[in-house]
Simulated scan of single mutants.
Amino acid sequence: MTRKYIDCREFPSEMHCSVAISADSDQELLEAAVQHAVTVHHHADSPELRTQLAGLFHDGSPPVASPRAA
């Protein structure tokens, strides 16, 4: 099983969020990413948000160094 991750450092924001989240399953990662997006970034939980976040998942583990912004 390949770990998956999503990394806020890829997306510039006013708060300069440096959170990267990883998990063993897409569903677990999606739930954690949605919670983060809603709580920290004040997004509304919606099917569109969930689809967008799932499309940003990467295989593996987040890099130690900050990735280049998208």
Rank of each mutant, 00 (worst) to 15 (best):
Q35N: 15
T39S: 12
Q35I: 13
S13I: 03
S13Q: 03
S25W: 05
P47R: 11
H41C: 02
T51N: 07
L29I: 02
C8H: 00
H58R: 15
M15C: 07
D26N: 07
E28A: 15
A23F: 06
Q35D: 11
S46M: 11
A32V: 00
I21K: 00
L53E: 13
P47H: 14
A69G: 09
S22R: 02
P63E: 05
A23P: 03
Q52W: 12
S13L: 00
D7M: 06
R50N: 07
M15Y: 11
P67C: 08
R3I: 02
E48F: 13
E28V: 06
S18K: 10
A54R: 05
V64I: 12
A69C: 08
D45L: 09
E10H: 13
D26Y: 04
A44G: 10
A70H: 08
H42W: 13
P47Y: 05
C8N: 01
D45A: 06
K4H: 12
M1W: 10
R68I: 09
G60M: 14
P12I: 03
M15L: 15
E31D: 15
E31C: 04
T2W: 02
F11Y: 15
H41E: 01
E10N: 09
A70G: 06
M15K: 10
H42E: 08
I21M: 14
S18W: 04
A65I: 06
S18D: 05
T51P: 01
T51H: 13
P12D: 01
P67K: 04
V38D: 02
F57Y: 07
P63A: 14
A54Q: 07
C17T: 00
H16N: 15
S61V: 05
D7E: 05
Q52L: 14
K4N: 08
V38Y: 04
E14C: 08
A69L: 10
V64W: 05
V34N: 01
P63S: 11
H36S: 04
V38N: 02
V19I: 01
H43N: 01
C8M: 09
D59S: 15
L53G: 04
R3N: 15
Q52G: 12
C17V: 01
D7C: 04
D59T: 11
P12G: 01
T2K: 02
E48P: 10
P63K: 13
A70L: 06
R68K: 14
Y5V: 04
D26W: 03
S25R: 11
V64E: 11
V19E: 00
D45I: 09
P47I: 09
H41V: 02
R3H: 12
G60Q: 11
E10I: 09
D26T: 09
R3T: 09
L49S: 12
A65E: 12
